[in-house]
Amino acid sequence: MADYSSLTVVQLKDLLTKRNLSVGGLKNELVQRLIKDDEESKGESEVSP
């Protein structure tokens, strides 16, 4: 898992935009949104054959 907390808000928003996720909120919220997306993506890849 990436260390999103070391990134700037601009970098976080860029990552969120690329994933089609909301870019609104405080830095901590942006980090949590990326972590949640990582976990959901990981779960999907494990279920797929």
Rank of each mutant, 00 (worst) to 15 (best):
Asn28Gly: 12
Thr8Trp: 00
Glu29Asp: 14
Asp38Trp: 02
Glu40Ala: 13
Asp14Ile: 07
Thr17Leu: 13
Leu26Val: 14
Ser48Gln: 08
Gly43Glu: 14
Tyr4Ile: 06
Gln32Cys: 12
Glu46Ile: 12
Ser5Lys: 09
Ser6Ile: 06
Leu16Asn: 02
Gln11Trp: 01
Asn20Val: 03
Ser48Thr: 13
Lys18Asp: 11
Glu46Trp: 07
Lys18Trp: 05
Leu21Glu: 04
Lys13Leu: 05
Val23Lys: 07
Tyr4Trp: 01
Lys18Arg: 11
Arg19Asn: 01
Val23Ala: 13
Val47Leu: 12
Asp38Arg: 05
Ser45Gly: 12
Glu29Val: 07
Val9Ile: 10
Gln11Met: 09
Leu30Asp: 04
Lys18Cys: 06
Val23Gln: 10
Asp37Arg: 03
Thr8Gly: 05
Arg33Asn: 00
Ser48Met: 07
Glu44His: 05
Val47Asn: 15
Ile35Lys: 13
Val31His: 04
Arg19Ser: 02
Val9Glu: 13
Leu21Gln: 08
Ser22Ile: 11
Ala2Gly: 14
Leu15Gln: 09
Asp14Pro: 00
Asp38Leu: 03
Thr17Phe: 14
Arg33Cys: 03
Arg19Gln: 04
Ser22Cys: 13
Leu7Arg: 04
Gln11Leu: 03
Met1Asn: 02
Arg33Phe: 00
Leu30His: 03
Met1Tyr: 00
Lys42Tyr: 09
Glu46Val: 12
Arg19Asp: 00
Glu29Asn: 04
Thr17Ser: 14
Lys13Tyr: 07
Gln32Thr: 11
Ala2Trp: 14
Ser6Ala: 04
Lys42Cys: 06
Thr8Lys: 03
Val10Tyr: 08
Gly24Cys: 13
Lys27Tyr: 07
Asp37Ser: 14
Asp3Asn: 14
Glu44Val: 11
Leu12Gln: 04
Met1Ser: 12
Asp38Gln: 05
Gly24Glu: 15
Leu34Met: 07
Gly25Cys: 00
Thr17Gly: 10
Gly43Cys: 10
Tyr4Asn: 01
Leu30Thr: 04
Glu40Phe: 06
Gln32Gly: 10
Lys42Gln: 13
Leu34Lys: 02
Val47Arg: 08
Ser45Thr: 12
Ala2Met: 15
Glu46Gln: 06
Glu46Thr: 09
Pro49Leu: 09
Asp37Gln: 06
Leu26Arg: 14
Ser5His: 12
Lys42Ser: 13
Met1Leu: 09
Glu29His: 06
Asp14Tyr: 07
Val9Pro: 09
Val9Arg: 07
Glu29Ser: 06
Ser45Val: 10
Lys36Asp: 10
Pro49Ala: 08
Leu16Phe: 00
Leu16Pro: 00
Val31Ser: 04
Val31Gln: 08
Leu30Cys: 03
Leu21His: 03
Gln32Ser: 11
Asp3Glu: 10
Val47Glu: 11
Asp3Ile: 06
Ser5Glu: 13
Gly25Ala: 02
Ser5Cys: 10
Leu7Gln: 07
Ser5Leu: 09
Lys27Asp: 05
Glu39Gly: 12
Arg33Thr: 02
Ser41Ala: 11
Lys36Trp: 05
Tyr4Gly: 00
Lys13Glu: 11
Val23Asp: 12
Leu26His: 15
Val10Asp: 08
Ser48Ile: 07
Leu15Met: 09
Asn28Trp: 12
Glu46Phe: 01
Ser22Glu: 10
Lys18Asn: 09
Leu30Met: 10
Gln11His: 01
Asn20Met: 09
Met1Ala: 07
Lys18Gln: 13
Gln32Arg: 11
Val23Ile: 13
